[in-house]
Each structure stands twice: as C-alpha cells, then as structure tokens.
C-alpha cells in the first residue's frame, strides 16, 4: 500500500486515558457490541476501522454516553476514564461530556453565529467570567481548528453559511472550546472533499499534542495517515487492536488482513 504515508508513529506517553473491559452494547434484542477490551492512550490518535454496522460508532458513543439518548440502548461492562468508571451511578453524563468532546459525521453547527457556536460550550459550563475571556477562548479554539483566519472578520455571521469543510472545522472548534481531555470524532471527513479532508487530518495531528483523539473512519488510508493506534471491529467484536503500522503491514488476525486488503467489508 504505497498510498499510505506511514509517518512518525511516536507516542509521547504510554499512559492509558480510557480503559474498556468486557463492554457489551444491546439495542433492544440486538447484541451490537461484544466483549470489547481496549486501552486508549493519552495524547495519541486512535482509529477505529471496520465495515459498516461493525459497532465502531456504537463504541465511540459509549465513551461519552451519547448512547444514553437512545432509549433502547443498554451498555454493560466497564469503561474507565482516568480510572473512574463513567457508567457509575454517581456520574452525570453532562460533566462527562464536558471532558469528552465529540465531533459528528455530518457537520452540525447550530443555526447561530460562528461566535455563538464556539462560545456555547464555555458559556454553559461557566468557564469564563467576562466577555474578554470568552473572546479569547473563541479565538483560541478557532485558531486550534485552523479556521480563525477564514472567519475572524465575520464571527457574527451564521455558522450554517460556511462551506462543508469550514463547518466541520467549526464543529471541531466548538468541541475543543470546552477544553476536553478526549476528543471523539465519528467519521469527521465523510462529508468533505479531499482538500477539506487534508485540512482536518492535519488538524487532528496537531490536536494530538493536547488531547487524546479517537477517530472512527471508513477510510483505511485516513486511519493509516493520522493514527498511532488502530482498532479493527468486525460484526460487533474488536478483532484486533495495536500499533497502526503493525495493523496495516503485519496484521495478526486473518480477518483484519482480509479487510485491509479489500476482501471483506
């Protein structure tokens, strides 16, 4: 696979940010995810790959408890963030989601101004005391999302008026504005053209220095380009999890090999 740039795979730390043990997810009677054990590293990009319906998005949504909003979904097992069980009865999902931000598949800015989009999270979490501080956060977040130069003169225009790639970067700015520790991305580039995709990928690599990033993607090239760790899901099972280079060049499981060479999925 020559089109995959297997660039630097250095991981700064070896600390696990998220540890999942024996995670089961049921949608009604359907057993969507079985026995998932995974350790997600801090300050690294972890990619989840696998064919449609394999459970990778489901697992992603377990990490910030977005599955709570689906009334038929049921999660069993243990997911720990910094050693704390996030499914503990004492955990308020609202606090969890302030720590674990999420970017969705389709860019979904609020139909409000660019400024309001980014400032919404800090506002509801009471992160600022003054307008100046809020302005600062908005600028910093937009800069982190590599969007500042494009929108700094039109912060009061609606976020829905931006192009698709800009909207997705706005959503990333909105997610990083609350200073999360983990950033979950559910196929963030599936609605974007190659140029916008390249911009977002570059961004993900930069975000790695501050956050632990988990990205779900259908593009194996993308997984190879941006991630340090890759997990391959198939039919609800976590088939293989390891260093990205090893998964793509020397997979241990025959199913992984079949998938990355295009024989299944």
């Amino acid at each position: 696979m020559d089109d995959m740039r297997l660039t630097e795979r250095t991981v700064d730390t070896n600390e696990s940010k998220i540890t999942a043990r024996k995670v089961q997810v049921y949608y009604g009677d359907t057993h969507a995810l079985r026995d998932v054990d995974v350790d997600i590293l801090d300050k690294a990009v972890t990619a989840f790959i696998g064919p449609s319906g394999c459970g990778k998005s489901t697992f992603l949504r377990c990490i910030n408890r977005m599955n709570d909003t689906i009334s038929v979904a049921r999660v069993e097992g243990e997911i720990k963030l910094d050693g704390e069980d996030i499914y503990d009865a004492k955990v308020d999902p609202v606090q969890l989601r302030a720590k674990v931000g999420m970017v969705f598949q389709k860019p979904n800015p609020f139909p409000k101004s660019i400024y309001d989009n980014v400032s919404y999270g800090p506002k509801i979490h009471g992160m600022t005391r003054s307008k100046a501080e809020l302005d600062e956060i908005v600028e910093k977040s937009l800069r982190r999302a590599a969007l500042w130069d494009e929108v700094k003169d039109r912060l009061n225009e609606p976020g829905t008026g931006l192009s698709g790639g800009q909207q997705q970067r706005l959503c990333i700015a909105r997610a990083v504005a609350t200073e999360p520790e983990v950033l979950l991305m559910d196929e963030p580039c599936s609605a974007l053209d190659p140029i916008a995709t390249a911009q977002v990928e570059e961004l993900i690599d930069e975000l790695r220095s501050n956050f632990s990033v988990v990205i779900v993607t259908h593009s194996m090239q993308q997984a190879a380009r941006v991630s340090q760790r890759t997990a391959f899901f198939h039919l609800g099972y976590l088939v293989e999890y390891g260093e990205t280079g090893q998964i793509f060049t020397n997979p241990k499981d025959p199913r992984t090999e079949s998938y990355i060479t295009g024989r299944i999925g």
Partner: peptide, 23 residues
C-alpha cells in the same frame, strides 16, 4: 428539528433541558 442539533448540544455538555430550550 434535526436530531443532529440535539446531538451537537449534548455533545458539548449541555443538559437535555439546555439542549431543548437553547436550541
């Protein structure tokens, strides 16, 4: 109202009530 708006609000840590009344 598309569910993506609710997801977006919940995703940045809004409570359900905030998601409903703000967005």
């Amino acid at each position: 109202v598309p569910p993506s708006i609710r997801d977006a609000a919940l995703g940045v840590g809004a409570s359900r009530m905030q998601a409903v009344f703000h967005h």
